[in-house]
Structures are given as structure tokens and as C-alpha cells.
Amino acid sequence: MIQDLSHLQDPEPEATRRDTGTTESSRASRGWWDRHADEYQSEHGAFLGDDHFVWGPEGLDEAEAGLLGPVSLLEGLDILEIGAGAAQCSRWLKAQGARPVALDLSHRQLQHALRIGGGIPLVEADATALPFADASFDLACSAYGAVPFVADPVQVFTEVHRVLRPGGRWVFSVTHPVRWAFPDEPGPEGLSVAASYFDRTPYVEQDDTGRAVYVEHHRTLGDRVRDVVAGGFRLVDLVEPEWPAWNSQEWGGWSPLRGNLIPGTAIFVCERA
């Protein structure tokens, strides 16, 4: 699911840029989403819908985008949603006749999936160690789930490659890498470059003991492409959704003002090599 809800943390943690490894990143993500799942679903649940497949704050819908392939061909396919949150995307996939499985690191997010219902199989697990047999799925997808929060995304991609069948498609969305050079502000103050695009140092929010409570990892566009290839995939398409005229919301650093000037989301469409 879509991130950037760090303003909900109370008391306010210290924001910094520092190195952080796999274990610390995973622990921080699990704790953060467990603490903030309620606020997240309350604030953004209506925009996401209970059974829609929305790729990001711009509102690009899979029903129109068809990034997983033609909607008419989803019926009967086994599909893994990674970082599923309340399983909104999986619920839409099931309505198309697919057989989705929704996986998330956060127990509380999956409780919201149970609350909404729909009979989606739910799995609580880390995306770097998928608890499935080889070649279990036809497709895999992730709308702002897992990839931005792990220290080594190739671990995720390698696992996805393992559980996909030959020719399987893997589609995931993340914050567009160019946005890391700009302040995370939706107004005019967020339109000037404030940091190096090439600084890969993770963004960390930590408590007064120095323990990370939120971690997000920056990769350049080139890094993402190389990670995809290293994970055993072929990049088929890279989609940068434009901000639509109907969308007037502000969501963290996303807004109509910024969305009409710089990309906010990058969607990578990959196929298992």
C-alpha cells in the first residue's frame, strides 16, 4: 500500500538519513504499520475503495490501466499481492475471477482485510522470504508495498521470481525516484530541489533511543532497473502516471500542484525471464 504517513507518529520522532540494514528496516516497518494501520485506513480507505485496484496517489486504476494484462484474461489465474494492506487490490482481482493471495508484514493491516471481508486468503510474512513453493503463481503485484521499505529489494525480486511460473508478470509501484530530491511538501515549498538525487542514504525516523521506527530506502531509476534485472526479470514497461484533472486530494507530498509538474509514482512492469 501507499506510504508517507509519518506525520501521524506521536510523539514526533527524529527524522534523519543514515544507514540501516535488513533486520532493522523490517522491524521498523512491521511496528510502524501495526501502529498506524487504523489511521491509514480511516484517512485513505475511501480513496482506495474496498475492492478497487489503485496503483498510487494519482488514482491510476488497474481496471483502466491493464498493467497486469487484459482484464478479461485474469480469470482463473493465481495472483500474489505483496504488501497488500487491507487487500483492496486482491478483492478487485477476485471479482475478476482470479485466485488472489494477499500477503503483508503487518498483522494490523491484515486485521483490516478481515474486517472488510471478501474471503481473500491472507498471509502474514516478510516479502524477502515468501512462504510459498516454487512456481505457485501466474502473476504478482504490489501497490506501494514492501519494495520501498526493504534494504535489499533484489531479495524481494528473487523471491517473487522463485514463486512465479515461467513467463509470469511482476508489477510494482513505488515513489518515483526523482521525488527524493524534493521536500516532501505538497505546496510551492515542495517544488525546489533540496537534496541530491544520487544520495541513497535511507530516510529514517527514530525514537529518542536511536531505534528506527520508520525506514524508507531510496533507489535511483537506474538502480531500480538494475535491481529488476538482477532479480531475474525483464522490464517490459515503466509507467509514470500523470496527475488527472479529477483528483484534487493532497496526500503527503503528492498534490495536484506537484503532480502536474513532476512524477510522483513509478510503476515497473516486469516479466519472469
Rank of each mutant, 00 (worst) to 15 (best):
I2W: 03
L5W: 04
S6Y: 12
S6E: 15
P13K: 06
A15Q: 04
T16G: 03
R17C: 00
W33Q: 08
R35S: 13
H36W: 13
D38K: 13
Q41E: 15
G45S: 11
A46W: 04
G49A: 01
D51A: 15
D51R: 14
H52T: 11
V54L: 12
G56P: 11
P57V: 03
E58Y: 10
D61G: 01
E62L: 12
E62R: 08
A63Q: 13
E64W: 04
L67R: 02
L68M: 14
I79T: 09
E81R: 12
I82W: 04
G83W: 10
G83M: 13
A84V: 08
R91E: 11
A98C: 12
A98T: 12
P100G: 03
L103R: 08
D104M: 14
L105C: 05
L105G: 02
Q109A: 10
L114D: 13
G119Y: 06
L122K: 12
A125N: 06
D126M: 00
A129R: 15
F132R: 07
A133T: 14
D134F: 05
S136M: 03
F137N: 02
L139S: 01
A140K: 03
S142W: 05
Y144A: 03
A146N: 01
A146S: 14
A146Q: 00
F149T: 00
F149Q: 01
V150A: 00
V154E: 11
V156R: 01
E159R: 10
H161E: 12
R162Q: 14
G168H: 10
V171P: 05
S173E: 04
V174M: 12
V174S: 03
P177I: 09
V178L: 14
P186E: 09
L191V: 06
S192L: 09
S192W: 04
S192D: 14
A195M: 11
R200G: 04
Y203L: 15
V204Q: 12
V204K: 13
D208M: 11
A212W: 09
Y214F: 15
Y214G: 01
H218S: 06
R219V: 03
T220A: 05
D223P: 02
R224G: 02
R226D: 14
D227R: 07
V228S: 08
V229F: 07
V229K: 08
A230I: 08
L235W: 04
V236Q: 12
V236I: 14
D237W: 00
E240W: 05
E242Q: 14
E242V: 13
P244C: 06
A245P: 02
W246G: 01
W251G: 00
W251V: 02
G252Q: 04
G253W: 10
W254E: 02
P256D: 08
P256K: 03
P263S: 06
F268I: 00
E271H: 05
R272M: 01
A273C: 04
